[in-house]
Design a protein around this nucleic acid. Structure first.
Length: 419
RNA sequence: GGAGAGUUGCCGGAGUGGUUGAACGGGACGGUCUCGAAAACCGUUGUACCUAUUAAAGGUACCCAGGGUUCGAAUCCCUGACUCUCCGCCA
């Protein structure tokens, strides 16, 4: 969330950000509640101060054996008043908090302004689309021919969008995950975490999924838990309500988790095969940085994610999301889109975002800087990368004319794994 | 799931319902001393919000969380979370 004082002092900037992000947030209501709250707070504080001072007098008199009846009757009235004010203040604060959580983060100045993905900007293209001497098949055909996937049975036991990987398909999926984890740990200096896949409401609110996206998540109602839509959620929140020290920053974490998304309202959109799933695997990179270093870290994470695609020698492009396509919590986001020659499309395999202090403020994650001052740090994350679309690109790119797959040699050490 | 114990500041650890933001110890930081360091001594050691913002200053809240009792709660009562021990169940 944004700093209330910042909002007060930059009303128009915030208003514009809401518009540019296509968000609906009632800024005026927020401001008027804030006003109301400050008035109540002032009244409350004054009355409390009065109560405190008289209470001290009562204590003295009582000790001295003097009469205190008058004070007591007056104070019981004051106590009533305070109770009333406290209730009002509590309700007002709750309302304020609720509104504040609906105000989106402000895009960085260098983010292109635009309504939807058509305004996104391609800033980099790596490699070239693979040329084939035959008509390339799409990944679903290839997967079926090679017995890598069993989608009907996945649908039978869970529903559509819950894939079953079979035999070599399951092994390949596992190797890909392992490859990426090892790559980021060994070459990019990340620390691996294994984290809970179900998290509580506070955690979901910390990274900004709640309250806006409740409809998009699988919920375990009995325990008020949610299945994570990305490892970003548990990993970023590990430091909730903590104060780190600048010497320990940046912190770099990598975590593999399955991700669960209801994808409500996106039926029929690019759903063939593994393109859009309710459960998929993803290796996620998360960094906690000093505010001055987050812009740099964003480029680093992008490069870390790109390194994976480059290792597989896959053609891809990097896109800067425009304001309208930016997520609620993000200040700036790069998408990595890998080329899938059989499907004939660029597929998003990674989203790399700088959240500034937005998440840190929600989750109350701070750090002590060089001067000893306690401030909110910056959080960032990026997929490094999501497997289903990576798998699509690999299958489609490395298919042979007979439909078999010749896997890229970087995977050899994993395929030969013997223990 | 059942029974018990606990949760206080950076850490350890006191705390009788009435100047307790919180004793005492440790750590950290600053200073004195020293060529330098150690030791010793002195001092400092919070966060959020509000009023005022030129500044200074003042006020309020916070002893796991939320309620309650009371003129007044770290202290009493209730509920919940978490940790530890024992029992049961279990991969």
């Amino acid at each position: 969330m944004l700093d209330l004082k910042f909002i007060r002092n930059n009303v128009e900037l915030v208003r514009q950000a809401i518009i540019n992000k296509n968000e609906k947030a009632d800024l005026d209501a927020l401001l008027s509640i804030d006003d109301q709250r400050r008035k109540l707070q002032f009244e409350f504080d004054n009355l409390k101060a009065h109560q405190n001072s008289v209470s001290a007098i009562i204590a003295q008199r009582k000790k001295a054996g003097e009469k205190i009846d008058n004070e007591l009757t007056e104070m019981s009235k004051v106590a009533e008043e305070i109770k009333g004010l406290a209730n009002q203040l509590g309700a007002t604060n709750a309302e304020l908090e609720k509104l504040l959580l609906t105000i989106p983060n402000i895009p960085q100045a260098d983010v292109p302004v635009g309504k939807d993905e058509t305004a996104n900007k391609v800033i980099k293209v790596w490699g070239e689309p693979k040329q084939f001497s035959f008509t390339p098949k799409d990944h679903l055909e290839l997967a079926i021919q090679n017995n890598l996937l069993d989608l009907p049975r996945g649908a039978k036991i869970s529903g559509s969008g819950f894939p079953v990987y079979t035999g070599e398909g399951a092994r390949l999926e596992r190797y890909l995950i392992n490859f990426m984890l090892e790559y980021h740990c060994q070459k990019h200096n990340y620390t691996e975490l294994m984290v809970p896949l179900a998290v509580n409401r506070k955690t979901m609110t910390g990274t900004g999924q709640l309250p806006k996206l409740e409809e998009d998540m699988y919920q375990i109602e009995k325990d008020d838990l949610f299945l994570i839509p990305t490892a970003e959620v548990p990993v970023t929140n590990i430091y909730t309500d903590e104060i780190l020290i600048w010497k320990d920053l940046p912190k770099r974490y990598v975590a593999y988790t399955p991700c669960f998304r209801r994808e409500a309202g996106s039926y029929g959109k690019e759903t063939r095969g593994l393109q859009r799933l309710h459960q998929f695997n993803k290796v996620e990179l998360v960094q906690f940085t000093e505010p001055e270093k987050s812009a740099e870290a964003l480029e680093e994470i992008l490069a870390n994610a790109e390194a994976i695609l480059q290792a597989f020698n896959l053609h891809y492009r990097v896109v800067t999301l425009c304001t309208g396509d930016l997520s609620f919590a993000s200040q700036k986001t790069y998408d990595l889109e890998v080329w899938a020659p059989g499907t004939g499309k660029y597929l998003e395999v990674s989203s790399v975002s700088n959240f500034g202090e937005f998440q840190a403020r929600r989750a109350n994650i701070r750090f002590k800087d060089k001067t000893g001052k306690v401030r909110h740090l910056h959080t960032l994350n990026g997929s490094g990368v999501a497997t289903p679309r990576l798998l699509i690109a690999i299958l489609e790119t490395y298919q042979q004319e007979d439909g078999t797959i010749k896997l890229p040699s970087v995977l050899d050490p994993f395929l030969r794994l013997t223990l």
